[in-house]
Nucleic acid binder design. Sequence first.
DNA 1: GTCTATAACGGGATAGAC
DNA 2: GTCTATCCCGTTATAGAC
Lengths: 183, 183
Amino acid sequence: MDAVDRLLASTRELLWERGYVGTSPKAIQQRSGVGQGSMYHHFAGKSDLALAAIAQSGAELRVSAATLLNKPGSARGRITAYLQREREVLKGCPIGRLTQDPDVLADETLRRPVDETLGWVRGRLAEILAEGKESGEFAADLDPIAVAATLLAVLQGGYVLARAANSTEPYEQAIKGALSLLR
Amino acid sequence: MDAVDRLLASTRELLWERGYVGTSPKAIQQRSGVGQGSMYHHFAGKSDLALAAIAQSGAELRVSAATLLNKPGSARGRITAYLQREREVLKGCPIGRLTQDPDVLADETLRRPVDETLGWVRGRLAEILAEGKESGEFAADLDPIAVAATLLAVLQGGYVLARAANSTEPYEQAIKGALSLLR
DNA sequence: GTCTATAACGGGATAGAC
DNA sequence: GTCTATCCCGTTATAGAC
């Protein structure tokens, strides 16, 4: 793993753990083992590093969501699998957490990959809900766009409740409740 | 408004806007117009100020939730009113946002009021869902604890989606979807 | 490409005068 | 109670040598 890869890996970890405001270039250097000069040779600065790291995390999130959501099977089955997939609940969502970072939201360049990633998941969920509606799995009056937003919000909000409680329990309840309502 | 009140008001605003990590004692002093010495006379330091501010915000959130949830009326009506009440969506939840702050979660003293506030709302929603189940408004197999977690997660996650998109639209869709599923 | 030196500024507080 | 001075350390770079 070269310097660039180690810098990106460390930046992604730190953004996940501490957010953008809570992450310093020095901390990135220490965690990655890459020196000051080397870091500024490869990246223009903190925001440049963060942009590359967020783009990578967003791409990875889409791939792993697509893997589950594109599988063959019923719409309900795929959505259930996606909602119930194993997650590091107490760590939260590496993309969603960035929405609490004022400096990320204030910078269109940094916010865009966050928006695109969550927007993509919402869209993909809506497509599957529409398929399930078509095939008669879901009620004819189900609104795919609205319910897709609801389901992704349950995930993102589930992280919030779990972190507040320092327990995965509320997250699991929230998922369980959402799946029961979808019946 | 005396110095203490102005310090607390400013701290609450800054915690809401920038989180704990993003809020400095100096910023609090400048926004409140209270001097350095005065601040450290009334509060032991940043975490002490934050604790008092979080407790106040949590108490206020409970009061405003209770106001809507305790009104007379059907269970469904009260829950709908709570979910649809006007909110500063793009600012997010002043309590929920603190769950993204590593220094808040790492300190039991600071995390407790966050946990208690969100836990209280979950509990109150569960009580109302149970009442509605009793009265036949909701299906007999509805799980009040799980669905209460789902509804609060939709709110908290709705903020996340809205801030990512820099638009209240996904928040409104998430609420709409949740209410439609509750039917 | 990577290293060390330097720098201007902010964070988070303590000390003691008034 | 409030003010100013002081302190040490971290942040976020830039400069230039190797």
